[in-house]
């Protein structure tokens, strides 16, 4: 492993390939009943296309908040986030939704499949939103790719946890995203299933050349990414390139 200081990483990443995600002095503060609560404090980093990146830290360190801000699911209090060179804080909710549909894929710890849609329909949603004509064919191919050939027409409640997460992965890659955000993707799965799911994410990521941003508790999984950012109390305490 090669340890280098944070400033050098920023310099290295910005000098080379084209930047897909740029986080600048990002701060997030919540107004609570008593005092304002800062959950992220002055976080900066940037990622190039195709990078794999993980955010680790203990519970309450601000990992999920950072992921949500990077994906445009929430608004920053200070600083900025640029996704594919577009400043997210300049966009309204619907513009950010359109941006997500175009560039972003998601994998969640609790799968977040739409319970009223079949596996196939869940995967088709991002494609149909983009107005793609062969949505069904693409979605079927993806479901076959993740090993769910016989589960196309099953509803989420009829699938196991591992199967649900595979549907979720197929959906995340369906719109050929430039960046994939994964929030504890194996957090709800047993070890054997976790390994299969991890493998699937990394394989598909490689095939599609997608940038991967992953929040995890699992340091072994984090070690499989090119770069690991560690948070504590909302601050970056280390940024390591593997």
């Amino acid at each position: 492993m090669l340890f280098i200081c944070l400033e050098e990483i920023v310099l290295i990443t910005t000098q080379n390939m084209s930047t897909i995600l740029k986080v600048n002095n990002l701060t997030k503060t919540y107004n609570t009943d008593s005092n304002p609560l800062t959950v992220l404090n002055n976080v900066s980093f940037s990622l190039n296309e195709g990078d794999t990146f993980s955010i680790v830290g203990s519970s309450g360190s601000g990992k999920t908040t950072l992921l949500g801000l990077c994906a445009g699911l929430d608004r920053v209090s200070n600083g900025s986030v640029e996704l594919n060179n577009i400043r997210l804080d300049d966009l309204d909710e619907d513009e950010r939704a359109a941006l997500r549909n175009k560039y972003v894929g998601f994998v969640f710890q609790s799968f977040q499949l739409i319970p009223t849609l079949t596996a196939l329909e869940n995967v088709m949603v991002p494609l149909e939103l983009r107005g793609e004509k062969d949505a069904a064919k693409t979605a079927k191919d993806l479901l076959n790719r993740v090993g769910l050939e016989n589960r196309h027409h099953h509803y989420p409640t009829q699938l196991s946890g591992g199967e649900q997460q595979r549907v979720s992965i197929a959906r995340a890659f369906s719109n050929r995203p430039k960046i994939l955000f994964a929030d504890e993707p194996t957090g709800n799965l047993d070890e054997a299933t976790s390994q299969k799911v991890e493998q699937l994410i990394f394989d598909l990521n490689k095939e599609a050349g997608t940038t991967l941003v992953m929040v995890t508790h699992d340091l072994e999984l984090a070690a499989k990414t090119q770069r690991v950012l560690t948070l504590k109390g909302g601050k970056v305490i280390s940024d390591v390139v593997n």
């Binding site: 939704a97 009223t116 959906r171």
Partner: peptide
């Protein structure tokens, strides 16, 4: 609402 939140994540606008 949880379904709506997922749809919003996938790029569906509020409207």
């Amino acid at each position: 609402l949880s379904t709506v939140a997922i749809l919003r994540c996938l790029g569906v606008s509020g409207r």
